[in-house]
């Protein structure tokens, strides 16, 4: 389980996250939604142990999240996540050497499914192919928690569609949980169990997507239009 307890984060004097608490169990796909700069990336980085909360605690399986929590957590950054001198194959081999839970066979499968050329240098890959490769590197780990920061951002619809399909195919919801941030809400909504809505660093709502459909007859986007304007 991932557990955030009264977590706040301040950069210099600017408050980015204000007193957020929530838990995430295994076996779910969770979306974190909110406007630009609302603190979505910060939350993911804190769970990955790459940022420390100013106050409060973040734990993964009961362990305080420091950078070496990476043995339980697979993190995809919204930034470029590669050593550019690697080829696709070398990047995958390097990831496999660093993470003992990395499933090479699964990586090969996802790579083939994403139609990536293994001999191409990363510095020569298109943005769409770099986005695909990030997914291969993150999704091929047999790890309980996967965190993806804007996995669909800046990619064309074909690639976005392939990535969403890849998540459905290769995520094992019996043993894994995926938390992702995204602006492409309509594309991820059908695959989300729950969503966490953030506004100005505060938690506005955490609920099951189906519950929102059932109780208010709204999709996430329509609900946000209402809730964020108030």
């Amino acid at each position: 389980m991932i557990e955030l307890t009264n977590v706040s984060k301040t950069y210099k004097k600017r408050s980015v996250i204000a007193n957020i608490s929530f838990t995430v169990p295994l076996g779910k796909i969770i979306g974190i939604v909110g406007e630009n700069g609302s603190g979505k990336s910060t939350i993911l980085k804190m769970i990955a142990g790459l940022l420390q909360p100013t106050t409060g605690t973040v734990t993964v399986n009961g362990e305080n999240a420091h950078r070496r929590i990476s043995k339980h957590v697979s993190y995809l950054s919204d930034r470029d996540s590669f050593y550019p001198f690697f080829t696709v194959r070398e990047a995958i081999a390097y990831q496999a050497s660093q993470f003992s839970d990395f499933n090479l066979a699964k990586a090969e499968e996802i790579m083939a499914y994403m139609a990536l050329d293994p001999d191409k240098k990363i510095s020569a890959l298109s943005k769409g192919n770099r986005g695909r490769l990030k997914i291969v590197l993150t999704l091929a780990r047999n790890v309980p928690y996967l965190l993806m920061d804007e996995p669909l951002s800046g990619l064309d619809p074909m690639v976005r569609h392939a990535i969403v399909k890849g998540m459905i195919s290769y995520l094992d919801l019996e043993t894994q949980t995926l938390i992702m941030t995204s602006h492409e809400i309509s594309e991820i909504e059908p695959i989300l169990d729950s969503f966490i809505a953030i506004k100005d660093g505060a938690l506005v709502r955490k609920t099951e997507v189906e519950h929102l459909h059932e109780s208010e007859g709204l999709g996430i986007t329509d609900w946000m239009k209402k809730a964020y304007l108030e």
Binding site: G27, K28, I29, V164, K165, I168, S169, L173, P190, I191, L192, D193, E210
Partner: peptide, 13 residues
Amino acid sequence: REMALSYNVNPNT
């Protein structure tokens, strides 16, 4: 999982 893929929805759904 197959059904999830053909409808593009969460397998839990």
